[in-house]
Design a protein around this nucleic acid. Structure first.
Length: 423
RNA sequence: GGAGAGGUGGCUGAGUGGUCGAAAGCACAUCUUUGCUAAAGAUGCGUAGCCUUUAACAGCUACCGAGGGUUCGAAUCCCUCCCUCUCCGCCA
């Protein structure tokens, strides 16, 4: 959520920044500004009346002690009470409306975020390694998975539905090995603290990290208990500190967490894609940082570098693109996407999205720290995948397939996997 | 799931309808004094919003788990919900 004061003081700046995301947002700014004016007017009136009531009610108490008759004043206060109720209703309604609209307005892209209309204009900022070449026709992971009995899409569809998969045998083992490898890497080499959270959360947590209310159709909801399946570990992990004033010395707080991620992918174009590319459930190791405003941008660089180490260690070719203003996510001020090369796909796959949310999420979840003057300020929050697993699995088996059909396991992964190759 | 106890400021804890945003203690901050591996005293010390302002101060409002209700007036009475603890039941 954005700071309402920014709307009051610099509406044109807010409009200008929002317009870099695309058309149609500036009318919301005007709507909020006018609503805010009405709301404050009602609020001020209500507070004035409440003050009157408090004062006169005290007088009643004093008069009663002296044994005086107070029926006339009581009637007067009753009248004030009625007006408070009326105006209070208006003020509350305006307040709810304003908050509702505010929750639907995206974050302002950072000045460092490149301007652009769509994904086509995302600049490529880095390429690491090169595309591997093969003296045979490389297969895709679906074929390789079937050949070695790693992936069973039919079973996934049978027990749950399409876009769910069952990992079997060496496939299940590889998935598990990757999770352990990633958690160990980030906790022992990059200073993250491992956390293992619930996989279902309440609505407030999703509001905090911006999945709700705007993207309600993308999360699985258990109606009976009003709980949601996590779409990413970002949600439970960032919300660990909601409603808190964290100690400044504790910043930056850095967490690494494994969770499965559940996504409805309603209306998603890629849902029919063959294989593991887009699933309703996939594993992910997520990195989360809570920082001061001063350091968040440099922490974003570090976070991205931490995710890159995954691909470097596994020897996978990748590139980093920077999302332009027209493509950057709802709550983000700046985002790097890391895309790994998948030879069987003949394309890059997004395995990590590293974002700095500024104070956007912190404001929603009331996450603050005390600055050097003892003043409470909102933290900055960041997160990035370190990395998403299904696609990492894809890149790995497709990259390391051999002419004889076997799949080599990169050396750093072997002790987790327990073998040098599959097949 | 059932029974009981309880949720008050950073912590402990008083407060059962009226000058209560809330006693007292601890912790913390500043100052003073003594003087030296510490003690005593003074003052200050919640959050958010509104109003105002260059800014600060002052002022006003709200907040005693959450949401409703009763009342001229609610931390205090009533209702619903949530959470914690104890016991019982069930259970990986």
């Amino acid at each position: 959520m954005l700071d309402i004061r920014l709307f009051r003081e610099k509406p044109d700046y807010v409009k200008e920044r929002l317009s870099t995301r695309g058309a149609g947002l500036s009318s919301m700014v005007d709507e909020v500004t006018s609503l805010d004016e009405q709301r404050r007017e009602a609020e001020t009136e209500r507070q004035k009346l409440q003050g009157d009531r408090n004062r006169i009610s005290k007088e009643i108490g004093i008069a009663k002690k002296k044994g005086e008759d107070t029926s006339a004043i009581e009637a007067q206060v009753r009248g004030i009470g009625d007006r408070i109720e009326q105006i209070g209703r208006d003020a509350d309604a305006l307040d709810i409306k304003q908050r509702e609209i505010m929750l639907g307005i995206p974050n302002l892209p950072h000045d460092a975020c490149p301007i652009g209309d769509s994904a086509e204009q995302n600049p490529e900022v880095k390429v690491w390694g090169e595309k591997p070449s093969y003296d045979f026709q490389p297969k895709d992971h679906v074929t390789l998975g079937a050949q070695h009995g790693l992936l069973d899409f039919e079973a996934g569809a049978k027990i749950t539905g399409s876009a769910f998969v069952v990992y079997r045998g060496q496939g299940a083992r590889l998935e598990r090995a990757l999770i352990n490898f990633l958690l160990d890497l980030h906790t022992t080499q990059h200073g993250y603290t491992e956390v293992n959270t619930p996989f279902v959360v309440k609505a407030d947590a999703l509001v905090g990290t911006t999945q709700l209310p705007k993207f309600a159709d993308q999360v699985y909801h258990c109606q009976e208990d009003d709980l949601y399946l996590v779409p990413t570990a970002e949600v439970p992990v960032t919300n660990l500190h909601r409603e808190e004033i964290v100690k400044t010395e504790a910043l930056p707080i850095q967490y690494a967490a494994y969770t499965p991620c559940f996504r409805r992918e309603a209306g998603s174009a890629g849902l029919g894609t063959r294989g593991l590319i887009r699933m309703h459930q996939f594993d992910k190791v997520e990195l989360v940082k809570i920082t001061t405003p001063e350091t968040s941008m440099e922490e974003l660089e570090k976070l991205t570098a931490n995710a890159e180490v995954v691909l470097q260690t596994l020897g996978l070719h990748y590139r980093i693109i920077e999302l332009c203003t027209g493509d950057v996510g709802f709550g983000s001020t700046k985002t790097y996407d890391i895309e790994v090369w998948a030879p069987g796909q003949g394309s890059f796959l997004e395995v990590s999205s590293c974002s700095n949310f500024g104070e956007f999420q912190a404001r929603r979840m009331n996450l603050r720290y005390k600055d050097e003057h003892g003043k409470n300020r909102f933290c900055h929050t960041l997160n990035g995948s370190g990395t998403a697993l299904a696609r990492l699995f894809v890149a790995l088996v497709e990259t390391y397939q051999q002419a004889d059909g076997s799949i080599a396991i990169p050396a750093p992964l072997q002790r987790y996997f327990g073998s040098e190759k599959i097949g």
